[in-house]
Design a protein around this nucleic acid. Sequence first.
DNA 1: GACAAAATGAGGTACGTTCCTCAAAAATGC
DNA 2: GCATTTTTGAGGAACGTACCTCATTTTGTC
Lengths: 355, 355
Amino acid sequence: MRPTVNDIAREAGVSLATVDRVLNARPGVREKTIRAVNEAIARLGYVRDLTAANLARSRSYRMAVLLPDTESQFVQSLADALIEAGSQAATARIELKLLRFPAEDPHALAALLAGLPGRGYAGVALMAPETPVLRDAVRGLRVRGLPVVALVSDLPNTGRDHFVGIDNRAAGRTAGVLMGRFLGGGPAQVMVIGQSLLARDMIERRRGFDEVMLRDFPAIEVLPSLETHGSERLLRQVVAETLLHAPDVRGIYAMGNGHRSLTQIVEEMGLSGRLTVICHELTPHMRGALEAGTVTAVITQNLGHLARSTLRVLRAKADNLPLDEGQEQIRIEIVLRENLPPAPDSVRQNPAAAA
Amino acid sequence: MRPTVNDIAREAGVSLATVDRVLNARPGVREKTIRAVNEAIARLGYVRDLTAANLARSRSYRMAVLLPDTESQFVQSLADALIEAGSQAATARIELKLLRFPAEDPHALAALLAGLPGRGYAGVALMAPETPVLRDAVRGLRVRGLPVVALVSDLPNTGRDHFVGIDNRAAGRTAGVLMGRFLGGGPAQVMVIGQSLLARDMIERRRGFDEVMLRDFPAIEVLPSLETHGSERLLRQVVAETLLHAPDVRGIYAMGNGHRSLTQIVEEMGLSGRLTVICHELTPHMRGALEAGTVTAVITQNLGHLARSTLRVLRAKADNLPLDEGQEQIRIEIVLRENLPPAPDSVRQNPAAAA
DNA sequence: GACAAAATGAGGTACGTTCCTCAAAAATGC
DNA sequence: GCATTTTTGAGGAACGTACCTCATTTTGTC
C-alpha cells in the first residue's frame, strides 16, 4: 500500500495538520519541523495522490480555445482533436470551451477576448495571425492574470505565455531535404506555393526551405513563391500555366494548408506520381492524395499532441507551475504513403459510458 | 458545476442507491427504472468523475514489464520511458514493476513468468523473442487470468492479448521508399544488415523493404542480408570488405538496433554523408550519427507512446474494457537531421514534489 | 388478498486529500 | 517568570463516488 499523509504524520512524529501545512506550503511551521516532515516523506517515498487532492480541492479549470471560423479541414481536425482532448481532460477537472471567431475580423476577435476574463475562464489558447489589435487584446488578458497560449502560429510580440506548435523553420528545412533528396539533387526547378507571404509561419517555412536548398542542393532552382490568398481559382490558373511552360519543374512545395485544388490540377495534367509534391498537414484530403500517389510527402504535426499539450500548458500556467519543455515540444512528422497512420476514429459518443 | 450522482437521483426521481446500482450494473433494478436513470444521465450530461471513482474503489493495478537484460541503448531508453510512464500513471493507481531477464535464457524467463500471478500482478508486458518455452509460459499466464501484452516484437502464436509496437512490414516499406528515393531510383546496390534473420521483426522489415524495392525501384540491387548475431567485430569486418570491393554500394539499411560500429566504419572509411544510411530506433547514438550526417534517416517509434500505450492496454485488459484501437496504434516516425526532436530530459527526480 | 419475491430507499462508512476552527503547547520577548 | 506570539494538535466537514446493510415499498403469483 502506498503511504498516505497519515503515515507521514506518524513517521515524522507530528500531527496530520502539520503535515498538511508542510505539503501545501502553508505558513506557521518551524523550519526544523518542515525538515522533519520532508525527511519522513523521503523515507517513506510518499507520493501525493493527485486524484484525491484534486477531488478535495474541487478546483476546476475553464479554458477557452479560439479558432477561426474557416471551414478548412485542418482547422476542423484541430477542433475535433481539441474536443477529444477536452473530454479526456475532464478527469483532470478541465472544462474546455471551443469558440470560433470571424477569420478576417481582428476587431471581433479582440472584443471576444476582452469579454473572457469576466466569464470565469482560467486560460485562453488561440490560433490567429498577429495584428496590432490582437497584440493589445492579448496584453490586456495577461494584465488581468489570464495565461495566453498561441496555437499553431506564434504570436511572439504579444507576450503570450507559450507557443504550442512546430518550429516552422525546421519544418521548412525538413521539406527542403526531402525535396532535394527526392529529386536526386537536381538539376530541376521547384515551385513554392503559399496562401500569404505575410503570415509568420509561411515566412519561416520558406526561409527554412531556402536555407537547405541553397546550402545542400545548388543544382535545384527554387522559383519565387506563389501567393494564392486563399483563392483556389488563382492557384489553378497559375500552377497550370507554370507547369505547361516550365518543363524543368519537377517539384512543388505547398507551404500552407488548404490547397485542395493543387492535387486536382496535378492529377488532371497527368502528372500524378511524376512530380515530387510536398505539402503540410495530414488532413483527410491529404491522406487520399498520398494514397493516390499525387502527393509524395506530407509534413505534419500530430493534432492530438497539439491539443493535449495546449491543455497541459494552460493548466500549468494557470497554476503557475513549471512545465516539462521536453514533453511540450511538438514533433515535425514526415508522412509518406508507406507510413500513413490509420485514419483516426470519428469523435466519440456518449462520454458517460466511459468507465 | 458538473452534475453528480445526487443530481441524477433527483432528476430521475429515484434514490442514490438505485442510481449507483444502475451506474455500476448491479442487479436488482427493473428495466424501466434503468431506462429512467439513463435518460436522466443523458439529460444532465452526466460524466462520472473518474478521480473520485478510483479513489472510492481504491483499486490499484500492479503491472509487470519484462525486458531483456541487454544493455543496448534501445532497451535502456525503453526502460526509461516505461519508468517515466509508470510514475505518471501513479495517478491512475497503476504501479509498474520493471523486471529484467537474461536475454539468452528462455527458461529463466519462463520461470519468472510462472511466478508472477501469485505475486499480485494484474497484467504483464514483455519484450522477448517467441520460443516454444515462452509460448507455453504465456499460455499459462492467460489461463490464470493475467492479460499479456507483447512489446516491440510480436508474439502472435502465444495468444497474447495485444501487441504494442509498430507494423514492422510497413516500417520496412518506409525504409524502402526512402532508400529508393534518396538514391534517385538507382542504379545502385544496397546492403542490408540485421542481427538475426530468425527474429520475427527482422523478417518482416526485410519483407517490407524488398516489396518496395522490387516494385518501385528495379534499378536498385538489394544485396543478401548480412547477419551479425550481435557481433560488432563480424559487422565491422564484413561491412568494410563489402564497401571496398563493391563500389556500387550507395546505401545501407540497418534493420536492427545496436549497430554502433556501423557508423564508426562508415566514418573511418571517409564515406560519411556519401552513403545513404537508414537505421532504426532513435537512440542517443543515432542522434549523434544523424547530426554528424553519417546516418541519413532513422525509422523509429516514440518510446513515450509505446510505454503509455502499454500501460493503457494492460489496464483496459485487466478491467476487461474495450480499447481505442486508434489511440493505441504506434506511429512509424521518420527522423532526419532536420526534424530531429530535442533530446528528452533525463529521468525526473523526486516524484513527491509533483503538484 | 395473502404471501413471497423483487425492487427501492435510507443511511452509513470509506477512499486520501484539502481546508477550516479552536484549543493546547511551546517558544520568545521583556 | 509572566505575557505574548508562534507553533502544533485534534477534530471535523467536504469533494464525488463505491459498496454495504437493513428496512420498506412495490410487484407478481395463486
